[in-house]
Design a protein around this nucleic acid. Sequence first.
DNA 1: CCATGATGTTAGCCATCATTAACGTAACCG
DNA 2: CGGTTACGTTAATGATGGCTAACATCATGG
Lengths: 198, 198
Amino acid sequence: MTTAQAPTRNRGNRRAEILAAAASLFAARGFHGVSIEDIGGAVGISGPALYRHFSGKDALLAEMLLDISSRLRESAVAVVTTASGPGETLDALLHVQITFALEQPALITVHDRELSNVPEGERRRIRRLQRLYVEEWVTVLAELHPSCPPARLRAATHAIFGLLNSTPHSAGELPPQDMRPLLHAMARAAIEASVNAR
Amino acid sequence: MTTAQAPTRNRGNRRAEILAAAASLFAARGFHGVSIEDIGGAVGISGPALYRHFSGKDALLAEMLLDISSRLRESAVAVVTTASGPGETLDALLHVQITFALEQPALITVHDRELSNVPEGERRRIRRLQRLYVEEWVTVLAELHPSCPPARLRAATHAIFGLLNSTPHSAGELPPQDMRPLLHAMARAAIEASVNAR
DNA sequence: CCATGATGTTAGCCATCATTAACGTAACCG
DNA sequence: CGGTTACGTTAATGATGGCTAACATCATGG
């Protein structure tokens, strides 16, 4: 059989296609549960062809996490700099995170499970972005509730992420247009409660 | 070097010891990221000795998940049958889940990540137990809010689990005695909100 | 045209890993 | 005691997997 191949139409799309396929697989079976063959197979190429696009499996994961971390972070910064007031800002942050969770469940899942498999160097950069993202939230919450200690706000923020990112687990329970307001309302209420609990 | 070994003091403890060590490792690096050698090493024996206690790596994971699923389920049943009223029952359910999340973060983590690596037969039994556990919650919530459609209550329940199980991520942010009431208050408020959102 | 770069393919290398085999030793039991 | 059981050990085996090598194909553009 010849090595026929489609005309080079997908110039820069291949990388994105691979990243998307890999995200689904990693989310479903874990980084180590997915082989290079699996990822290649998912986009119709076979195995080692991946090395034409990424320097290795680690690098692929690193780019994936770096990408989502910076996108989240950028969205948050954009929201905060456009801020009208703390209340609206919080709603906008919620909107961003909920949109991500509903539209990219695989990425969100991988994002908070597989950091440990990223090689040292990149790992630090990703962690930095994640920390900055959390701090955007904490800052807004602190404006809303100045009397609440930051450690508590940080813990509350992580809990809210847990709530919002649970979406992958309840896949199909409820249509997205119902899920969105539900998550928003639950998160808002949980945040209010977090600063009042004795 | 001789094959000296301690007098058979740890009769049934070895299995539990292995399960605990494996849980930590699986939580940290994922099922496929941990080798039999790693697990053995963590309890001071080396590699294949594990096969004296478990029939294989899969079986070890299966037993781990089966154990925690049934413990959660049993606790929930115990709570519900001792019920005084729906409000108190819900608080008791929250207490159970929060205790688990705070005291066994590794188990909780593995519990909702690694089900796919359990062999078919056991997987069904575990899924069954998980579903029953969720239904205990949904039943209680339905008593509190009869007008709310079950699908919505189920989605809300999953979101609450996400919130409570986020504990491993905020490890060390806040001491457990502060974490517990915080999580309880956030979860309670989120549940209230879940039934009122338009 | 044909050299080049981008993108695939298959075959092979080497490491890791789950599992089994073959073998010791200590405690217990008759 | 002698044998069985419980629990470990180290070596071997077979599969899988990441990655490299050697080799096509095609579009492009000089």
